[in-house]
């Protein structure tokens, strides 16, 4: 097992490479989802303020 983590002596290069890929992609995905959640939350709050508009939307779509 320690042989596996040692990566033939190249652990200092292989693991950081995988680490940074997962880190950057993870942060990107997380921030994208947060952005979507925030926008949807604000949208819902604004639509609650304007019931007239919301009703017309519900009548049309669904």
């Amino acid at each position: 097992m320690s042989e596996f983590f040692d990566m033939g002596g190249y652990a200092a290069f292989v693991w950081p490479a995988y680490g940074i890929v997962l880190l950057v992609l993870g942060v990107l995905a997380l921030r994208s989802v947060q952005h979507l959640r925030r926008a949807e939350r604000e949208l819902a709050a604004l639509q609650a303020l304007n019931p007239r508009r919301r009703r017309s939307r519900q009548g049309k779509g669904g």
Partner: peptide, 11 residues
């Protein structure tokens, strides 16, 4: 290239 070739799979 030994084990470093594994970097290729993400690079």
């Amino acid at each position: 290239q030994g084990e470093t070739v594994r970097i290729m799979y993400v690079h």
